[in-house]
């Protein structure tokens, strides 16, 4: 698979079909990180294995702008796993990325691994091993069973008594330092000015207190309703180890349940939160 990716990257760069290939590399201290390859001679840097869990689609909105006024938007090739491809589909649906400015190097995903070699939890409940969209596919679909996500982690929280849930979340969110890494790593968080950072403190001020932090995280998650593809990027970058994806996954679970089984990034349909009723909804909470 690595050789396929390198050969493809070399070809694309040599032809001048893309300006840059975004993939993964191993840094000098042995950590896997995003790699931006501009020269055909540098494609040997690229790797792919179970440590490549970052969602590189995050970088596309930033690159989908002309560098200077009047210049053309450069074309970028990007390595995408099945989960990342769903994020990309959301961005395409929302016109944040031009399809002809992205070359999608899809990878047949064996699943990602934790530091200790065990499979990442999100990969044990994944039902896609091949991306839903790509320009070229690298690797053979692996023989890993695909599993339908039962949202057991979310159910565990749901089963707690109300006060314990509040205590749990207050305890977790209290550690937040408002570094905004979750937002920055999220492929579908792309507002140019985040409402948590408005100069006039319209919604939240600058303070590092529980109300501000709770507001930020609830609203950030809510803005991802029907758009979050559960790629786990937010949680994976949190320097305080807050289980942020539990919030997003709760919303994803409810969206699917209430809005006709909708899953973000699996179709050209935008999030149902912005569309009209179709009659397939099962919305029960109106009194």
């Amino acid at each position: 698979m690595i050789e396929d990716i390198r050969a493809l990257a070399r070809e694309l760069l040599e032809k001048g079909a893309v300006e840059c290939v975004i993939g993964y590399e191993v840094g000098p201290t042995g950590r896997v990180r995003p790699a931006f390859v501009y020269e055909p001679g540098e494609v040997e840097r690229l790797i792919f294995d179970g440590r490549c869990d970052q969602n590189l689609v995050t970088y596309l909105t930033r690159r989908n702008k002309p560098r200077k006024k009047g210049e053309e938007v450069p074309t970028t090739a990007v390595v995408v796993k099945p989960c990342d491809a769903r994020s990309l589909r959301v961005l395409l649906n929302e016109h944040q990325v031009q399809r002809d400015k992205v070359y999608i190097i899809g990878v047949a995903c064996p699943g990602m691994q934790n530091a200790d070699g065990t499979p990442e939890l999100r990969c044990t409940r994944c039902d896609q091993r091949v991306p839903l969209l790509y320009d070229a596919l690298c690797g053979e679909p692996p023989e890993v069973p695909t599993v339908r996500d039962a949202y057991e982690d979310v159910q565990q929280i749901e089963a707690l008594p109300l006060e314990e849930r509040l205590a749990y979340w207050l305890g977790e969110l209290d550690r937040c330092i408002r570094c905004y890494a979750c937002r920055q790593a999220c492929p579908t968080c792309f507002c140019s000015v985040c409402e948590a950072e408005r100069d006039d403190s319209l919604w939240v001020g600058i303070a590092d207190r529980i109300p501000e932090k709770a507001f930020f995280h609830i609203i950030r998650a809510f803005h991802q309703a029907g758009r979050c593809t559960e790629c786990n990027a937010c949680e994976a970058v949190c320097p305080m180890g807050i289980p942020l994806s539990l919030i997003n996954r709760k919303i994803a679970k409810d969206v699917a349940q209430m809005m006709g089984g909708y899953r973000a990034g699996e179709s050209d349909e935008p999030t149902p939160l912005v569309t009209m009723l179709t009659g397939e909804e099962a919305i029960d909470e109106i009194h």
Binding site: V154, I157, E158, L162, E163, E164, R165, L166, A167, Y168, W169, L170, A214, I218, A221, F222, A225, I247, K250, I251, D254, V255, M258, M259, P272, L273, V274, T275, M276, L277, E281, I283, D284, E285, I286, H287
Partner: peptide
Amino acid sequence: HRTVKRIPLLRRLMTYMGIEPDRLRL
């Protein structure tokens, strides 16, 4: 049509975070 999706979804999320659902009504 947006309200009827948004508010119940928010209500579920609030409940999940530990706020009584009956504090929000549509």
